[in-house]
Design a protein around this nucleic acid. Structure first.
Length: 501
RNA sequence: CGGGGUGUAGCGCAGUUGGCUAGCGCGCCACGUUCGGGACGUGGAGGCCGAUGGUUCGAGUCCAUUCACCCCGACCA
């Protein structure tokens, strides 16, 4: 391949640059990339077809991984009786402040006939909560499904929407309503449940790294950051380009908390009655936000080939209709040869836009590979192949093009992962004093690896003063004697702090 | 819930101390020339100036009220 230097002249006219305003850059990509739109409802977004296509690709990869690990899909109600939520003390404590509540079931025309009002006659006996998560409604069902160890384990996942009435929202990263999957499993033993929770954590990590091209740190949350109602919360933490951490997925070991709250018992092999052990785990459309912030640049989205709704776009360059006809012929052959390799291809011979416009447009949409084919190529039996991740262009022979492209897609997938990994590695900084901690947090960002005395008081004090939180205690964290950067008390290991989304 | 913004054409915006027919860029429509990095020319269509109420001979502009959304914080996946 005849490599050419990336064209430095390429800059978008309509996307805010990262260095100018990172938040605005992110919003521009989401809106102008056609992923999502604001809606008439505060805090709720419209996921547009292109954005939803990414979600569908995520879903299908994850769904297969869940099925491969023995899980089945099911569906539980959107509404949860208010009393259910309060059964588990920590759980209600954690979610009460952000629940949408249904109080009535009917509207009527107002007295003056001009508008529709809530019918006060139609007040619900017991209010319903729009699910912020489904542990309670699901464990209520599990109670009636479980009698004996023979009924266990139950390994269920559901794809659903949930509502958390957030104060402040950001497209994909935090919206009032969002889409996710939530796995809810029931087990006969503590060990088995713990094994399930960690197994699904590994599934998430594998998905993030292999599909999204986003390296993640697997870890366990501090008590303060733990899920409401869990005994242990595992997480995968990613780092994005502005140096902030983002929790990309969580898996919870729930102990017997929900079994106790919903009185779910079973008879074990020793003929003794015991409470059931539980896990729950989830990832959401937030992954799309993570994906965007991990890889994209000032020209637009950069999507990993494995999740890109369109992997290759072919753009014809023709001066007239006769030429276009000849190019069409060749391009359609290329298209089908690529499709035969399982590659998703769009051939854009729409003559309403110029090639230059299309180049910019598909760059903004993050399509991994662009093939341009014009009269020169017809003569030379070649095409121009441009890759989105490096913005480099090459002239490639038509012979063996589909193999070349398939290989290039793989290379791009690897490259964006490698790039993100290198960035992440450069942004895990060991720090040994609180001054250094604060300085580097501001100047460099990323994860600060620091000693911590293990108390919530210290964690909260650091959060209060610096906005940084403990993102996780990495799994297999090496023991290392040291002193807490804040309190000076003895510490056995370093933990990862960062400012986070 | 606090602080800050913004509401004028599909999108982005301008609109002076109140003044007559509300503009500009992009996009859209038609025709022509173009087409290897967001083409150009000519012509054209498109407005309840967020809503309500006031002041005034006259309001996009001043006053009051109100609604909505965005951004920054506290809270959170």
């Amino acid at each position: 391949m005849n490599q050419q230097a990336p064209n430095k002249e390429i800059t978008s006219k309509s996307i805010t640059r990262r260095e100018d305003d990172y938040s605005q850059w992110y919003n521009d990509l989401v809106i102008k990339g056609g992923l999502a739109d604001y809606s008439a409802v505060r805090g709720c977004m419209v996921i547009r077809p292109y954005g939803f296509a990414i979600w569908e690709k995520m879903q299908s990869a994850l769904d297969k991984m869940f099925k491969d690990t023995g899980h089945s899909n099911a569906y539980f109600p959107l509404f949860i009786p208010k009393s259910f939520l309060s059964r588990e003390a920590a759980h209600v404590e954690g979610f009460a402040k952000e629940c949408a509540v249904v109080t009535h079931y009917r509207l009527k025309t107002s007295a003056d006939g001009k508008e529709v009002v809530v019918d006060p006659e139609a007040k619900l006996e017991e209010e319903l909560i729009v699910r912020p998560t489904s542990e309670t409604i699901i464990w209520n069902s599990y109670k009636s499904w479980i009698r004996s160890y023979r009924d266990l384990p139950i390994l269920i996942n559901q794809w659903a929407n949930i509502v958390r009435w957030e104060m402040r929202t950001r497209l994909f990263l935090r919206t009032t309503e969002f889409l996710w999957q939530e796995g809810h499993t029931a087990h006969a033993t503590r060990d088995e449940a713990m094994e399930e929770a960690t197994k699904m954590l590994h599934v998430y990590a594998q998905f993030a790294e292999e599909w999204m091209g986003v390296p993640v740190i697997k870890g366990v949350k501090s008590a303060n950051e733990r899920f409401a109602g869990a005994e242990e919360t595992f997480c995968i933490e990613a780092l994005v380009q502005d140096g902030k951490a983002i929790q990309a997925g969580t898996s919870h070991f729930l102990g017997q908390n929900f079994a106790r709250a919903f009185d779910v018992t079973f008879t074990n092999k020793e003929n003794q009655v015991d409470f059931v052990w539980a896990t729950s785990w989830g990832v959401s459309t937030r992954l799309i936000g993570t994906l965007i912030m991990a890889h994209s640049d000032d020209n637009g989205l950069v999507l990993p080939p494995k999740l890109a709704p369109i992997q290759v776009v072919i753009v014809p360059i023709a001066k007239n209709e006769e030429q276009l006809k000849l190019i069409d012929e060749k391009a359609l052959l290329i298209k089908s040869s690529l499709e035969a390799k399982g590659i998703t291809v769009k051939y854009d011979n729409d003559d309403k836009q110029k090639p230059g416009w299309k180049f910019a447009e598909y760059e903004m949409k993050g399509i991994p590979i662009r093939i341009a084919i014009g009269p020169r190529d017809l003569q030379n039996n070649s095409v121009e192949v441009a890759r989105r991740d490096t913005l480099s262009k090459s002239i490639v022979s038509l012979d063996g093009l589909s193999e070349t492209v398939a290989g290039l897609l793989e290379e791009i997938q690897q490259n964006i992962y490698a790039r993100a990994l290198a960035f992440r590695e450069q942004h895990i900084t060991p720090v040994d004093s609180y001054d250094q901690f604060k300085k580097l947090l501001d100047e460099k960002g990323g994860f600060m690896s620091a000693h911590w005395d293990g108390t919530t008081e210290t964690e909260l004090a650091i959060k209060e003063e610096t906005k940084a939180t403990i993102r996780c205690i990495p799994l297999n964290n090496p023991n290392e004697e040291g002193k807490c950067i804040y309190s000076g008390k003895p510490s056995k290991q370093r933990v990862l702090f960062a400012r986070a989304y």
